[in-house]
Amino acid sequence: MNATTTGPARTPAVELRQLSHRYDSQLVLRSVDLSIERGEIFGFLGHNGAGKTTAVNILTTLIEPTAGWASVCGFDVVTARSEVTQRIGYLPSDVRMYPHLTARENLEFFAALSGLVDVSTAVSETLDYLDCGPLADRRVGSFSTGMRQRIGIAQAIVHRPEVLFLDEPTSGLDPVGVRQLRETIQRLNRELGMTVFMNTHLLSEVAKVCTTIGVLNHGELIYKDTIEATTSRFPDEASLEDIYVKMEATSAGAAT
């Protein structure tokens, strides 16, 4: 059941070196250096348009960087795409999946695309693991946001990836849904040994679930450290939200 750790030995789960990306004339990632160790739950913070989703799009092999280098489990996301895609699971924001198909049919499709042989067993195990059994044979189009998100997580982990990328996973969820998602992430990390890379705005959740955070500001990584180190570095701030606001303000001040 556990995600098996593979790839070149002692390599970080995720590594970015001088990574840059440009959309037309706009530079959205600026020489980002970042390393995330295996087993971490990493919270990637930043304002809208900071470049978080672009970074995830590069790491999930959807787009190629315009400069620099990125790897997952030691494999280059451009030159070793096949190796990378075997090892990652991805849940984008606002994904709707195939609304006319049932949850099981959706999962079977993505499990088969992941190269699994016993698709049916893998899907049933995943649905059971996430307590999604009652949703299995209902069409995804009839689901609430919370249900859809659970099936979205299921498609992301059906092949037991080593690294799980979540892009704004709490978007549109009610407080109960947010709590369930947090517990699911912690279980996946604890029980299946998955490294989690999570883009999010929900700082209260980051403080509860993440082991490490990074802050992206206008495409530049302005901060990265563990949650414990962060809170001890900013003893005067009451919450991670206050710390984040202070970092953004400091960064803006430095820029001007």
């Binding site: 999930t60 895609t85 075997q86 984008p92 994904v95």
Partner: peptide
């Protein structure tokens, strides 16, 4: 869904 398809092999 294209994002889910092309983040696989």
């Amino acid at each position: 869904v294209g994002r889910l398809v092309f983040s696989r092999r």
